[in-house]
Design a protein around this nucleic acid. Sequence first.
DNA 1: CTTGACCTTCCAATGATTGGAAGCTTTACC
DNA 2: GGTAAAGCTTCCAATCATTGGAAGGTCAAG
Lengths: 148, 148
Amino acid sequence: MNIGEASTASGVSSKMIRYYEQIGLIRAAARTESGYRVYSPTDVETLRFIRRARDLGFSVEEMGTLLALWQDKGRESADVKRVALQHVAEIEKRIHELEGMARTLRHLAGHCHGDDRPDCPILDDLAAVPEPSAKKRPARRPALQNGP
Amino acid sequence: MNIGEASTASGVSSKMIRYYEQIGLIRAAARTESGYRVYSPTDVETLRFIRRARDLGFSVEEMGTLLALWQDKGRESADVKRVALQHVAEIEKRIHELEGMARTLRHLAGHCHGDDRPDCPILDDLAAVPEPSAKKRPARRPALQNGP
DNA sequence: CTTGACCTTCCAATGATTGGAAGCTTTACC
DNA sequence: GGTAAAGCTTCCAATCATTGGAAGGTCAAG
């Protein structure tokens, strides 16, 4: 099985297979006499594992960890679970960031006429000078902004 | 006002200010005799605009569009609103992707003992061979996966 | 035996940002 | 005035995952 077939069978592009080999995520493939890479069904299985992990948003580094655990028959499932849940936490953090952005933008767009007049609260907000820190009583919510 | 002060005042790093100048997002700053960049309050205002747009997840290209609209006193607010809402749509798309990943991972982790035993549904799922296409009746939902 | 599809390596680009090196300028202090 | 530190300049490189292309070798079908 050459790299093109392995690519089709696994859903990982040939380019990425070579890249994963280069950075050491997967072992160097066997070669034919003429230098073509050769893949076994087991190799394809590994590539498919990578494909699925990638689709779940794992980084190359995390995929390396998961691959090692997968191939370690004496692993503790707690280790796998920890990697997965930590990744979930990262994803949720990102979701919250994005939700904050979307909320702010929807709010601003909701107050924008969206017609041929130039007045636009969206631009006004983007251009606004953030208040130094507080006026008399500090506002309970410091306005529409996202955290650090 | 030199680049460091402009950076502090706007919240955009000196590195990024030079970069934005280089790629043409902002006009080249004036210079002192000795070559130092000089920024006016108006320039800082522009940088702050950029900073806020960036915090809302706009790309450099989108920031260019927004900046042009901002500086065009004859703009139509509909144009601004369209850019904002299109960005909201992109953000929401990304949120849905991430939510799909998180849902899958939470589901898998929920079935993982997470102890010292090696059995782990997370790894099992990552290693699973996707069914060729269907068995008898095609499944209504083709399993846990994300689109192309 | 030619053609086209496939493989090889190597280099470059993406997007936004950060880091560092080498060298000049300004500021502060003695 | 001298010196040291901090800050500025440009240029180049790295990040992360992926794609694109060029130049050249190999395999299959016709």
